[in-house]
Design a protein around this nucleic acid. Structure first.
Length: 825
RNA sequence: GCCCUUGUGGCGGAAUCGGUAGACGCGUUGGACUUAAAAUCCAAUCGGGGUUCUCCCUCGGUGCCAGUUCAAGUCUGGCCAAGGGCACCA
């Protein structure tokens, strides 16, 4: 064994051996129970960043730990390789997106291997390869046949910078999630997945996800946005047979309506506008169209609107009230029309104040009645001015009033969701083509399954501006109809990359299947994912889409489970000097440099050491240095003592006192480390326990001048246990030391260390003696003493005698083997 | 406005059940080794006060204010702050 630690040499050597031996290949058939550990797969952007390093290290340690615990572990990796950056590179540098992507994958693969990750490379999946996107297209067709994929004309989010539409989930604060440019509304015919059909199940099943954090679950619940209320239909006074339906969560306030608002884009708005009001309404609508989404949705903005000139009748009161249009009503939500009750809604109140509309109070707090002249009353209360409902609690009136509307035929109970259907078509080249053709005779027709994949054309011109490069292909658009065989045109849009990433974790179970995206047997065998690890930024997007896909594929009979990810760990960001690492701030740390200077084991150890995985992690050069020093310290511990370490050690009890203590310390470390990993993967405390154990062995060693046979056995036990406990983290160093100690097989196939509960505790206890809850003394006692003996020991302490002299002892509380509290008066 | 998460030394963070607050590390300070440096090792390190001063005693302390309890970082109620999510969603 070398005297000094040379990580670069060791790491290269073992990486090659593991690769040559296919050490991390996972068989489908095994007697062992399965465990599926998964990191969110990367976009091949070019180089790994520290966020990747953290993500993959966490999952790798979990995978290796579970393997040592006796599981058949599936730990795959792949590439989310469709998407705009490849296409932008093509446009800027004239590169071929496929080639650009391949080169990035090659480089990043090299980096992943340098990190010593235990991937089964035979299961690698790349979403931009035809053998993968064939099945993305096939799944699209299955969804289409089920009515879950459909095309419609709709107001959609358009990003001018990216030249494509976006899903609602990809618009953050009115801006594009990728380029941060302001998104505008356009009316376009686009492909959607009917995720709204699954709104209730997606919401309800969140309760099943015990292994997910509440933050992610509430984000999803908010996004789905379920609310319960009522639909009321109001007859229009001036137009026979025309009704305006509204959705409200406050049916209890229906007697307080003083006007009604429809969105500027409301479908019947032209019919509802009188000739005198037409010009003003048209102007208002034109203005609303021009406004950006951000401006329009700003809650800061003063509300505006114009009257339409027509009126509705409130069937509960017979009162007439005017119709207005105002852009605070949203066409996409509810019915696009709102009943306005200014007395009990702050938005309606502001609007009524501005336009001098009447305010009618119908809910009151009997203790402290308000006339609602200065502000809306939005709390609970008792109904007034509400005919037969007067005196009823408003919470009860909600149901009673809706029931009346149901009975009389002008309303119903209604549950409403905010979730909209998922817009999946993109006007871009580098994505999976939507496998659909347009035939003049047969209409919209899916491509025949045996013709899949619909290949991306390669004869395209990336220099075009203002349209998708795919439209420049001379071969792509013209095709024949799969039904009638006549001339037909292909769909020119490709799919959102989030479609590709919504099922990749299923493909890993059966990555080479050429007949199906995966066999039902294998997917049911491996899934659900036991531990998924990734960034919080996917809390809604990817995780919601994947849950939807799983449920839809279950309904299609392709698999048998309805949630894909049993446990989810959302790791925190990697920061430097308190802020997120980014190129623009110039505070990035290049993983390559760390590997080169310190080795992957140091990088792995450090990125796990300072913070629990879910929290943000502050990268510091001093911290890396500290971890490197620790590894050197461990190395020296072994190399300085190698003559006294034997792999065939044999502990014979009883041991001498000091040796007994060290053996107990090792057992405590095994127990503590195992429990810390089981308890939400607290790797930071795991690593502190590596250090404690190392310190304990050094202390023990410092007291020895020569070694007895027993000493050698105990030292061997301690050091070999330490190396094994560290193996999931410092994968190369542990393997090297293991072999230096004479073992032939890989440490990573070893069984995880076990502890004996009788030994995983100190032989002596420190009895804490409190008087009235304050610590007054600490006394060493034997581990086996009972409660009565502890009381006696406590009372025999000189200090305690002094403090209790002349006082009455009211009672004594004993915490077994720990503490005695003496209560005195 | 609503929802979620988090508040502990100079810093990152420990502390299964309510039972010794500050593990482990970083930083800092002092020391050993060395011609010197690097590396390594040893020691100290929450604050106030006291003292017979390398020992030791005492009071306070986990965002704030109350409460429950023999005992609260931990439980309950009410606040405050930071981060994140949603938001003219009727």
């Amino acid at each position: 064994m070398k005297e000094s630690y040379f990580p670069q040499e060791i790491e290269k050597k073992w990486q090659k051996i593991w690769e040559d031996n296919k050490a991390f290949h996972t068989p489908d058939n095994s007697d062992k129970p399965k465990y599926y550990a998964l990191s969110m797969f990367p976009y091949p952007s070019g180089k790994l960043h520290m966020g990747h390093v953290r993500n993959y290290t966490i999952t790798d340690v979990i995978a290796r730990f579970k393997k040592m615990q006796g599981y058949n572990v599936l730990h795959p990796i792949g590439w989310d390789s469709f998407g705009l950056p490849a296409e932008n590179a093509a446009m800027q540098h004239g590169a071929d997106p496929a080639k650009w992507t391949d080169e990035n994958i090659a480089y990043m693969t090299k980096q992943l291997k340098m990190l010593g990750l235990s991937y089964d490379w035979e299961r690698e999946v790349t979403t931009c390869k035809p053998d993968y996107y064939k099945w993305t297209q096939w799944l699209f067709i299955q969804l289409f046949k089920k009515g879950l994929a459909y095309k419609k004309e709709a107001a959609v989010n358009w990003c001018e910078h990216c030249g494509t539409v976006l899903a609602n989930e990809q618009v953050i604060d009115g801006k594009c999630w990728r380029c941060d440019n302001v998104v505008e509304k356009r009316y376009l015919s686009q492909w959607f997945f009917k995720i709204t059909d699954y709104a209730e199940r997606l919401l309800e099943d969140l309760d099943k996800l015990k292994g997910w954090g509440d933050n992610v679950k509430t984000m999803q619940a908010n996004w789905i946005g379920k609310s319960k209320g009522a639909i009321f239909r109001f007859k229009v006074k001036e137009i026979e047979g025309l009704e305006v339906p509204v959705y409200t969560t406050r049916p209890d306030t229906v007697h307080g309506i003083t006007y009604l608002v429809v969105a500027p884009e409301y479908k019947d708005i032209e019919k509802l506008t009188t000739a005198e009001n037409k010009q003003a309404v048209e102007e208002y609508r034109a203005n609303a169209r021009k406004m950006s989404e951000i401006e329009r949705l700003s809650t800061e903005r003063i509300k505006t609107g114009v009257p339409l000139g027509t009126h509705c009748i409130n069937p509960f009161t017979g009162e007439e009230f005017p119709l207005w249009t105002a852009d605070y009503a949203l066409v996409e939500y509810g019915t696009g029309a709102v009943m306005a009750v200014p007395a009990h809604d702050t938005r309606d109140f502001d609007f009524a104040k501005k336009y001098n509309l009447p305010i009618k109070v119908v809910i009151q707090n009997p203790e402290n009645p308000s006339d609602c002249k200065d502000a809306a009353y939005t709390e609970e209360g008792i109904l007034v001015n509400s005919n037969e409902f007067n005196g009823m609690k408003n919470t009860e009136a909600k149901e009673a009033i809706t029931q009346k509307a149901v009975n009389e035929g002008f309303g119903e109970f209604k549950t409403q969701y905010r979730l909209r259907d998922w817009l999946i078509s993109r006007q871009r080249y580098w994505g999976a083509p939507i496998p659909v053709v347009y035939c003049d005779k047969c209409g919209i027709v899916p491509e025949k399954e045996e013709n899949l994949p619909v290949m991306l054309p390669t004869d395209v011109d990336f220099s075009v501006v203002g349209k998708s490069p795919i439209t420049t292909s001379k071969t792509f658009e013209e095709t024949t109809c799969p039904i009638c065989g006549g001339k037909a045109k292909r769909e020119m849009d490709t799919m959102d990359t989030f479609v590709c990433s919504s099922w990749y974790y299923l493909r890993y179970s059966d990555p080479k299947n050429t007949n199906l995206p995966f066999s039902k047997e294998l997917v049911d065998n491996w899934l659900p994912v036991d531990q998924y690890v990734g960034g919080i930024e996917h809390a809604i997007l990817h995780l919601l889409y994947s849950r939807f896909f799983t449920k839809a594929l279950k309904d299609l009979g392709l698999l048998s489970f309805d949630e894909p990810f049993k446990n989810l760990l959302t790791q925190g960001m990697v920061l430097k000097d308190g802020s997120k690492m980014s190129k623009s701030k110039g505070n990035t740390v290049d993983p390559d440099e760390i590997f080169e200077n310190y080795g992957a084991d140091t990088a792995r150890l450090f990125i796990l050491s300072d913070s629990p995985p879910a929290r943000d992690f502050d990268w510091s050069d001093a911290g890396v240095e500290g971890c490197y020093k620790f590894l050197n310290r461990v190395w020296r511990l072994v190399s300085d003592n190698q003559n006294n370490i034997t792999k065939d050690y044999n502990l014979v009890f009883p041991l001498t006192r000091e040796n007994d203590d060290l053996v107990r310390t090792v057992h405590m470390a095994i127990k503590g480390i195992t429990n810390d990993i089981a308890n939400d993967f607290q790797f930071n405390t795991v690593i502190s326990k590596y250090r404690e154990l190392t310190n304990a062995i050094y202390d023990w060693r410092g007291k020895k001048s020569d070694f007895s046979a027993e000493d050698k056995n105990v030292l061997s036990f301690a050091i070999i246990s330490l190396i094994k406990l560290m193996a999931p983290v410092t994968v190369h160093m542990s393997e090297e030391i293991w072999h230096d100690l004479g073992y032939r097989s890989s440490i990573h196939s070893e069984k995880w260390c076990e502890w004996d509960d009788n030994l995983a505790k100190a032989s002596k206890i420190t009895l804490v003696v409190q008087v009235n809850g304050k610590v007054k003394d600490k006394i060493e006692a034997d581990e086996g003493v009972n409660d009565e003996e502890l009381k006696a020991i406590a009372l025999s302490s000189e200090k305690i005698k002094e403090l209790t002299a002349g006082k009455e002892i009211v009672k004594m509380i004993v915490v077994p083997k720990k503490l005695v509290n003496i209560v005195i008066k």
